[in-house]
Every structure is written in C-alpha cells, then in structure tokens.
Design a binder for these strands. Structure first.
Lengths: 233, 233
DNA sequence: CGACAGGTTGACCGTTATCAAAGATCGTGG
DNA sequence: CCACGATCTTTGATAACGGTCAACCTGTCG
C-alpha cells in the first residue's frame, strides 16, 4: 500500500472522477464536489492486497477509483464466500460507518487498484451539511438490502443450475443488443459467489451449452443464445 | 382489515406505545413523538390477512403495534421463503420507500394484528425535519444488510445442521440464565426461514437431541443443553 | 369430539460436493 | 519472447446430504 499525492493535487490523482462518479455524491454541485474531494485521500494497492480484514476497526468509506476489489466473508465454519465485486465508482465500508464499527468482511484488490478514502467524521460532517446525501445512501442501502434478500431466497430455494442461469441473464447489458457477457471474475470466484464449487460451475455451463442455450467463447466471455429458455427452466 | 379509531384518540389505540418503541423514533422528545403519532393511522387485521403483496405499490411504512407478521418472498421458481418475522415495535415497508416503490415481498399477519401506518410523504417530511431519523434509519439498514449478507453466506457455505444450530444458539436470550428458547414460528415456517424442509428440521432436531445437545419440550420450546458443542460442529 | 394443519418417521433418489488427475491459461522472470 | 510455475479449469468417479413422496401420529381449535 502506498499513499498517493495528497489533496493538493487532487485533480491529477483522479479523485475528481472518483468522487463525481459515486451515486451518493453525483447530484451535488461542482463546488460541493470540490469540498468533498478536499476531504478525501488517495491510496494505491498492488494486486492481492487487503484493504481491510474482518475484525478491523471500521472508520472510513472506501471509493474505488481504478481497479477492482473483491469483498468476501468467511462463514462460521471458515468457508469463503464472495459477496460482491467493486468496480470504479463503487464503494465499501459504508456498513460499518453506522453500526458497531467492526468489519465482518474482507476487501481484497483483484488487480492494482487506487481508492479514495473518507473518514467517518468527515462523512458525518457531510451528512449533516448535505442531508440529500443521507437520502441517497438510504436509497442505495435499500437496493442493496433488496438485492441481498433476493440472493438469500435464491440460495435457499433454487438449484445451482437456476442460480447460474439467473446470474447469466442478469449480466446481459440491456442497452447493448449483443447478448455477449464478460464474466466479472474467474469461474472459481463465480462459484463462490453463487454458493457452489468450480467443478459444478464448469459442468453446468457445459450442460447449458449442450442444450444450445449459451456458447462459451474465450475465458470469461459467454454468448447467451436463448435468454427466454434460460430463464424458464 | 378494519380502520381503527383515528388520530383523535391516538392514546387509546396504542399508537403511542407503537411509535415510541420504534428504534428510529425513540430518541425523540415526547412532543415530537406526539407529532409523529398525529401523522399515523392505525389498522387492524385478522390472522392470515395480507398487509401487502409483491407487486403492490409501496407508499407507506408499517409499524407493528400488536401481533405478529410474517414477511416472505417467492423465488423465481415460485417457492416461498420466509425472510423475517415482525414483532411489536418492528416495522416493514421501509425498503420500498426509497427505491422504485414496488414491494418484492409479502406481509401476512400470523395472528390478529394491529399496525400503524405512516405514508411516504409524511415520512419524507419527518426526515427533513428531524435529520437524526435518517441516521437511525441508516444504522438500522446497515444492521439488516450485514445480517442479510451473513445469512446469504450461511446458506451458501453451511450445512442445514449447522444453520439450525446457529439459529438455536442465536435464539438464546443472553440476559436470562435459562437456556430455554421459544421458537418464534412453527417448525414448518422455521424450515422455510432456514432454507430447508419440515422433514429435515424434524430429523436434525432429533439428531441434536440424540447427541445430547438440546432437549425438545412442548412444541416450540427447546432447551439448549450444550451451547458450545452445538456451535463447534 | 372430529377435522385439519402441523409434525414425525421411513424409504428412496437426485443434485451437488468431494477427491483426483489431467489440461489450459496467465503472469513472471530469465 | 519464450519457458516455467502457479493457478484456474475441466472431466471423471464416488458418495453423501438433503429433498421428495407417502404414511402415520399429534396437537389444537372450533
């Protein structure tokens, strides 16, 4: 981990784009964005470093500027599950900012990554100064919660094959008219994310391909041939 | 469903106790609580009625005053999963207040139940007038999200037996020195909540009893005999 | 007291995890 | 730029966890 150029040269370090692309801030005026930027600091990580571990004191919001981060948990019996992948503009650490303040998950960079950090006190200041940020956060939390509960329901009621199919279907970009998707992670990680094993992922994708529903191209690239059939299984 | 006495006789209808026991409000002064109460209305339901269905327009926060409510979801393939049980002081409907405004879950009363309702507009008014409510909400959402993600991880990495054991362990009241727990729902519902079937619940509880870790008393009542062993499985 | 939902038990089988080993891919350093 | 090792991916064989179906039991409530 290495500290970047500080707030004196924020525009060079990419903090502007970092902060301005975050949904909870991007409704603010430029001058307010400037203010927020002046409250952040920037840090770079090599691939494979941890930004925080479970149990760490939580005191900051981390916004991804460049790179990719894997958030995962360890279950009571020590097995790892990937909760979410962060791309530029996404953030993490927000949970612990409002509760008892210990991380329960791990944040690990998947590639070289630079992030912006806002400490809890500074965020609290912002929240009282710009109450709309709190509303944005509430919206985000709502969506995440809905998403998480949906995921829980899927895990408890759907077969692995259905979960994979749903994941693929939801990965299709509705704007693009191409039905090609790029997996945002390795199949090993996808297995963890979907609550199964790499072996099963491999087999089920092969099955779906045999059925003519998808076509696997180069690693990570999959074309959806029949979206409807994929979903009505 | 039947509309209760309106706000003119709020103290008779139990709205006071209703609102004042809600975590997001209970830090406010009595006179502010009065104001909030004047913004609510009260409704009673018979056992088995639905307060809302998935797909319903969402426009209110529902606070349980008396009774018990079961929140459940239907998965893509139509199977039901219980998400949470609401007791007096708990609330629901908050998710849809900040997002696209359609319920994705079902709320069904388990017994005769009376609730208080605050509409979205009134809640928005409260949020801008008392920003601390937003902070309380953020805290609540954080906890729920953490909880939900933990649950997701358990579903994807733990065996049914472990999930049951964890549920039992977490149901023990740490204040009381008795290790007896009362299941908050039928075993059928518990099965749904834990992502399994009634048959498996029955079998696993029997197993745990054979191992001497628990003792089943009258329906719903279970004594934990060896909490440590229960958890280190 | 009877009916009905909830609960238990048994037999069976399908889905998916596990173990093992071979093959593909990626990143790294020479 | 190539070669190597490490990691990821695939494929096969096997086993077990837990779901399903069916029958019976039990408690609860009108």
């Amino acid at each position: 981990m290495k500290k970047d150029n500080q707030t004196s040269c924020i525009h060079h370090s990419g903090i502007l784009s970092c902060v301005s692309q975050v949904p909870i801030f991007n409704h603010l005026e430029p001058k307010h964005l400037d203010e927020i930027m002046s409250m952040t600091r920037s840090i770079s990580y090599e691939k494979g470093e941890h930004i925080y571990h479970a149990g760490d004191e939580s005191d900051s919001l981390y916004i991804v500027n460049k790179g990719r981060i894997r958030i995962y948990r360890l279950s009571e019996s020590g097995k790892e599950q990937i909760v979410r992948i962060l791309n530029p503009g996404d953030y993490t650490g927000e949970l612990a900012l409002f509760k008892k303040s210990q991380h329960e998950s791990y944040a690990e960079t998947m590639v070289n990554t630079s992030i912006c950090i806002i400490t809890r006190e500074k965020l609290q200041t912002l929240l009282t100064k710009y109450p709309t940020i709190a509303l944005k956060l509430l919206t985000e939390f709502s969506n995440r919660l809905e998403q998480s509960e949906k995921q829980t329901t899927r895990f408890s009621t759907e077969t692995v094959e259905t979960r994979i199919a749903l994941f693929l279907a939801e990965s299709v970009d509705p704007d693009s008219n191409s039905n090609e998707i790029i997996l945002p992670m390795s199949k090993k990680d996808l297995a963890s994310y979907l609550g199964t094993t790499p072996e099963t992922i491999s087999r089920k994708l092969a099955e779906l391909e045999e059925k003519g529903l998808i076509k696997q191209k180069l690693q990570k690239k999959i074309e959806i041939l029949d979206l409807d059939k994929l979903l009505m299984n």
